[in-house]
Computed example of a mutant assay.
Amino acid sequence: MSDPSSIDLDFVPFGSTGIQTSELQFGTWRYGKETEAGNVEIDEQRGHELLDAYAAAGGRFIDTADVYGAGKAERWIGDWLAERDRERFTIASKIYWQIRDGDPNSRGNNRKNLSHRLDAILERLDTDYVDVLYVHRWDDATPTREMMRTLTRFVDEGKVHYLGASTLRPNAWKVARANEIARREGWDPFTVLQPRYNLVDREIEGDYLEMSRHYGLALCPWSPLGQGFLTGKYSREEGLTGESRAAESSRFEEAYLTEENFDVHDVLDEVAEEVGATPAQTALAWLTHRDGVTAPIVGARTVEQLEENLAAAQIDLSAEQVRRLTEAKPSPYAGL
């Protein structure tokens, strides 16, 4: 397994923001997450070990959200940052999901909820600002003008540097409309997008990806390994068995363990063997070679898994290999 200190992640332009970001960003959505059996997927000690390994590899972008581990992820990141130079790291968090039972106002992108939640985020992270604040989902109940005006106030107050929108795969027009309103009013627009995107989840390859390129927006995909499907841990013959069946939902099985997706995996395995890499590393390398993709968000349960993922930055795919992987599953918008 690679020594993370030997990987030395590069920096790449972060869309049109003017700053640079690590070519692979680190996601913390498993921090403090409890399984149905009551176990914690990643506890604080393991979380700090993963952050140590990421930083040792030159990683400087940490992605979190206020609902990850019910706030534990942000607190643990804040504790870890307290012993380091905050300015050397780019921190992103997100707001949307309801956090108090029986309180509908603790959900969404309205002014009341955004303002309260941002202050709590900063307190948990023990920092004066976040570099990127994402709306975690779109809130159709809140007028777009109110949302963008509120988000701009955060920038004006110095609490946020850049604005982002997460998980709006089929809604390119909503982002474009929000940005046009912001520009017309002299407010801050969204400059960062965070959709799901990987070899088998290709739904952004229509207006969404074209829109992000047109506006020069940074695009940082989550689930770059298809919730683990692209790591090679599942097979056609066995599907979900034993522990994996207990850990995954039937929705995962229906979405990923399909004949079409296993055909994609066959091509992935072939290319991985050609470049001397694992399927996971090759799937990540494909994303880094895609036009319009800024930096995939990688996560891991163990330091060993993280080191494997980060080593994907060292893999160079040929144009022919990228084409084969891309054509293994047709884009849903092909021919439109």
Rank of each mutant, 00 (worst) to 15 (best):
E180G: 07
G102L: 13
H136R: 09
V67G: 01
V192C: 04
H161N: 15
A176I: 03
E185R: 10
L51M: 15
D139T: 05
A300I: 04
E123K: 14
K72L: 13
P104N: 14
I297F: 04
G158E: 10
G32S: 08
G27I: 04
L24Y: 01
G232M: 03
I204L: 11
D156K: 15
A272K: 06
R290I: 04
S244H: 11
D126H: 15
V303E: 09
R202Y: 12
R100A: 11
G71V: 03
D103N: 10
A53R: 01
E260A: 15
A57D: 03
P330H: 09
T278C: 14
R117D: 05
N105G: 13
T35N: 13
M211Y: 03
P143I: 01
S22Y: 05
F14D: 00
E83V: 07
A280E: 02
S249I: 01
G186F: 08
R100N: 11
A182M: 10
E74V: 07
P189I: 04
L219W: 05
E254I: 00
D156Q: 15
L268K: 06
T21M: 07
V264K: 05
G299M: 05
E205H: 06
R86D: 04
Q305C: 03
E74C: 12
H48D: 06
H116S: 14
F252H: 00
Y197E: 07
P4D: 12
R149N: 09
A65V: 02
R86W: 05
Y31N: 01
P104E: 14
L133Q: 06
P170M: 13
R30L: 12
Y68H: 12
R60P: 02
A182F: 05
R153T: 12
Y215Q: 15
D43R: 06
E87D: 15
L114F: 10
I99T: 14
G216M: 07
I77G: 00
F190M: 00
L225F: 08
L114D: 00
S22F: 04
D63C: 02
E248A: 02
F26C: 02
D269M: 10
V135M: 14
Y208D: 00
S249A: 07
K174I: 06
K329R: 15
Q25R: 11
T294P: 08
R117M: 10
L81K: 12
T17I: 04
G276H: 05
H48P: 01
S166H: 11
Y197A: 06
F89V: 02
D66K: 05
G164V: 03
Y215R: 14
D52W: 10
H289I: 02
M211H: 02
L230P: 00
R60M: 10
F61W: 09
L336I: 12
D131M: 05
A178V: 05
T144W: 05
T144S: 12
L81A: 06
I42C: 08
W173R: 14
S331L: 08
I121H: 00
E146Q: 11
P221H: 12
E74F: 10
A255F: 00
V155R: 15
D126I: 00
P195V: 09
Y54V: 04
I7C: 03
I19N: 09
L230H: 03
I95E: 01
T326G: 13
A165T: 00
G164H: 06
L9C: 02
V322I: 13
Y96H: 14
E157T: 08
M148L: 13
D10E: 13
I297T: 00
Q314I: 01
S244Y: 02
Q98N: 15
V293L: 08
G158W: 10
L24E: 01
